[in-house]
Nucleic acid binder design. Structure first.
Length: 563
RNA sequence: GCGCCCGUAGCUCAGUCCGGAUAGAGCAUCUGACUUCUAAUCAGGUGGUCGGAGGUUCGAAUCCUCCCGGGCGCACCA
């Protein structure tokens, strides 16, 4: 629609230029057609006269009048436009016709859940990596945020025509697994009645003790035999066992959260395939890696990094960065031409090295987009819940889910821009009341379902063909027009949210849509005496329900029938 | 010190990418609306130096520069 209007304005400008009322260059200047914030200004507006006034050498309003004159012809010929005028400092406002509204509703009903789907991605392959928590302890609240974000982005990208895959990178190798093994060893000694202290560099959590108990239960034979192994072998065995168990727990918890991954990619796989070694070899060959003080360094300053980064430590073990570069190389090799990493706020220092590594390996660093998912601050009764592990007040993702539930948690995380630190009010998220935005949207959906249930009782089948033929011309109330207009915005919102990787746009849209619906519900009785009005309003309700349900599906929030 | 993010109503935040019409919601607070499809709702009132200062522009919350405040990062940790 807006594109059509833009063409008309363009044509009008050319016509004016041709008639020599305007300098030629005005005809190809830029302007936008958008929806005005204030509905009384019409359904679409262009700032053409404002941007071009100076070049045309006349006041904006006067130019606007001329453009409007030139547009009159085409507006009169369009079945989708019903009016045009000049407003404010020189905006040209367009009013859409009723037939446009009706056609749009029919499009929505025909498309159903496919409404808003686009082919922007053209089937190109994109890989989203998110959460990727170390398997050394329970998932925490920031990871719940990243999980919701990644899952919703994945849905949005699929909705816009991308072949999106989600992946979880499991750091199941390296120093931290050894540390985990050490922690297990201490706990096993304690279980055997030894008076073993937990050293500073081990994980102190209670969960390690539970894992140790499980190890004894599962492998009673090994539990005695491990003490004959070398320290290194023992810690590796125990660390691996614990990490595997923790990964299983993470996976189960994420499942419960409604987040599943297409693939769990283990760092140990990358290592077994020799990925890190291959990276070092190639970088060395190209002079992009060098040895200094017994360590191998990446010459990342070559690519704009502020300092070079260590790839292989002087003790021969890898840094986090090296296998991660190898992992990203594998992403490209597996045919993904766009990569999105969602990282926690404490990891952004890692990005320049990764970019440099990718570039050094001959890949396009711009193909990797990094989204930083910011901190979450938990509030309880207005006070911050301290997240200190030592103080023992720290809240895990599991506790959060137990307390507020999946839908509220996901919606709250998605409501805010990823780059903004988030205050999560536990009381508000839990409250089953009008204060809670999650319920506001869900309630709109439940209300719609309730209307359909009533309609069915009265013998009207909302899925039947007779509704398809409803006469939509009776939808004339302001609340109806507002709702229809909002429904028409859905594809654009999807496009924006997916394009900017900012799902909060969709959450905010759904809140606005729900508000429009509640307003409509209050002012326009659906199941009334007049069967024509009833049919048309049911038709509108069908469209509204589809859009809310589809929006909630993308957010991973359940669209309930009853509340 | 350097880099990234944030600063909009009493509180929590949209809006910033792509500059436009009197800057929007929710919560809090005040006033109204249930014999009718769910009042988990609706209508209305109160509430603003868009962190500050310059600059660009016909026009700036939005773009540029500088400054202030808060968070995070700057390891042979991950």
């Amino acid at each position: 629609m807006r594109r059509r209007i833009a063409e008309m304005v363009s044509d009008a400008l050319s016509a004016l230029a041709q008639a020599e009322d305007l300098p030629q260059k005005v005809a190809d200047a830029c302007f936008v057609v958008e929806r005005p914030g204030d509905p009384t200004h019409g359904d679409a507006a262009t700032n053409a006269a404002l941007t071009l006034a100076q070049q045309a050498g006349m006041p904006p309003r006067q130019l606007a009048e001329q453009i409007v004159d030139a547009l009159q012809q085409s507006v009169a010929g369009s079945e989708y436009l019903s009016g045009i005028d000049v407003g404010g400092p020189g905006f040209i406002n367009f009013k859409i016709s009723n037939s446009f509204r009706w056609d749009m509703l029919r499009d929505i009903r025909r498309a159903g859940e496919d409404y808003g789907k686009t082919d922007t991605g053209a089937g190109r392959r994109v890989l989203l990596e998110f959460v990727s928590a170390n398997p050394t302890g329970p998932l925490v609240v920031v990871q719940a945020r990243a999980a919701a974000l990644g899952d919703v982005l994945c849905n949005l990208l699929r909705k816009t025509g991308w072949a999106a895959h989600s992946e979880y990178y499991v750091n199941d190798s390296g120093g931290q697994i050894e540390t985990l093994g050490l922690s297990m060893e201490i706990r096993l000694r304690q279980l055997d009645g030894e008076d073993a202290e937990i050293p500073e560099n081990a994980y102190p959590g209670e969960y390690v003790r539970q894992l140790a108990e499980r190890f004894r239960l599962r492998h009673p034979a090994d539990a005695g035999r491990i003490w004959q192994l070398s320290e290194r072998q023992r810690r590796e065995l125990l660390g691996r066992f614990a990490a595997d168990e923790i990964v299983k727990q993470h996976r189960a918890l994420l499942d419960r959260y409604g987040v599943s991954f297409d693939r769990w990619y283990r760092e140990s796989e990358i290592r077994q395939q020799g990925g890190p070694q291959a990276v070092v070899n190639r970088l060395r060959r190209q002079g992009l890696a060098y040895e200094r003080e017994g360590a191998v360094w990446l010459r990342s300053t070559e690519f704009g990094d502020e300092r070079d980064r260590v790839l292989v430590k002087s003790d021969g073990s890898y840094t986090y960065l090296l296998p991660d570069i190898a992992y990203h190389v594998s992403k490209f090799e597996r045919g993904f031409d766009r990569l999105i990493d969602i990282l926690g706020p404490d990891h952004h220092g890692h990005v320049p090295g990764l970019h440099a590594g990718i570039q050094g390996m001959g890949m396009d660093p711009d193909a990797l987009e990094v989204v930083i998912s910011q901190w979450v601050r938990l509030l309880r009764e207005g006070a911050e819940v301290s997240m200190s592990k030592r103080a023992g007040t720290f809240v895990t993702m599991e506790q959060l889910l137990d307390e507020v539930g999946r839908d509220a948690a996901r919606f709250f995380f998605i409501m805010r821009a990823p780059s903004s630190p988030l205050d999560f009010d536990l009381e508000l998220a839990k409250s089953q009341s009008d204060e809670n935005p999650v319920y506001y949207v869900k309630y709109a959906h439940a209300r719609l379902c309730s209307i359909f249930a009533q309609a069915t009782q009265k013998g009207v089948d909302v899925r039947s063909e007779d509704l398809t033929g409803a006469d939509l011309s009776v939808l004339t109330h302001e609340a109806e027009h507002g709702l229809i207009r909002r429904l028409g915005d859905f594809p654009e919102v999807i496009g924006q949210a997916a394009g900017s990787l900012e799902p909060q746009r969709l959450a905010n849209y759904l809140l606005e849509l729900a508000a429009d619906f509640h307003n409509f519900y209050t002012h326009c009785r659906v199941l009334g005496d007049d069967s024509k009005t009833t049919a048309a309003r049911l038709y509108l309700c069908c469209c509204c329900r589809v859009v809310i349900a589809e929006g909630l599906r993308i957010l991973g929030v359940e669209a309930v029938q009853k509340m």
